[in-house]
Design a protein around this nucleic acid. Structure first.
Lengths: 99, 99
DNA sequence: ATCTTTGTTCGGTATATTACGAACAAGGAG
DNA sequence: CTCCTTGTTCGTAATATACCGAACAAAGAT
């Protein structure tokens, strides 16, 4: 019997998730999204003391890491957690920290 | 009744922990240490395909983030998890991901 | 006192991150 | 069509990260 996924691969995945979470702004976004279904970029922009373009960059990083996803709802964009990957991240953190 | 610690502060702490965990090598070190009490830098060096100096840098980052601590046991250095902070990190991740 | 082992620190380089404002798209409103 | 709103992308700059080999420091071994 072997692993369906190598430890190495899991490690790299978790590192990727952790890295994406390694900034206060991105963590804030994730917190908001984990507590409500979705939100608009503008909502976040109102609450955060950073330029729109900077926020956009952070959202892109979260998207690239697979933690969130955006859906166009013109003229806005609705952001939600990527639930599947969020659960995966949770499970990877758990198995690291609660062996 | 209020928070003994502001949400903001917790967020920043978690971001700091997450950032420290955001690299495969550092994650590997943490995994090893979470499964055995301690280890020596040399043990890690043998298993990792990176220069000693690079490993040393990663260990320093983990130390600066408060996740590990080193104890001199000449001529080696024994590294252990910083249990208190490890538990704190665990709890912060939990409260983010399992609200 | 010299050698050896173990790690850290230094110097250097390449790449990545964070941030901003200005310019640019996309699409609804008037 | 022209304006307005919403976000992204571009250009740029400062700082941080990741990595290596060489030099250095500490302390036990010979």
């Amino acid at each position: 019997m072997e692993h369906p996924e190598s430890e190495q691969l899991k490690q790299d995945k978790l590192a990727r998730y952790a890295k994406a979470m390694g900034h206060p702004v991105r963590l804030y976004v994730l917190k908001v999204l984990s507590r409500q279904s979705c939100c608009y970029s503008g909502d976040l922009s109102d609450e955060l003391p950073i330029a729109k373009s900077t926020l956009s960059q952070h959202l892109k990083e979260l998207k690239d890491a697979g933690l969130i996803q955006g859906e166009i709802e013109a003229p806005k964009i609705k952001y939600c957690l990527n639930r599947a990957n969020w659960e995966e991240a949770k499970s990877l953190f758990k198995s690291l920290m609660e062996p």
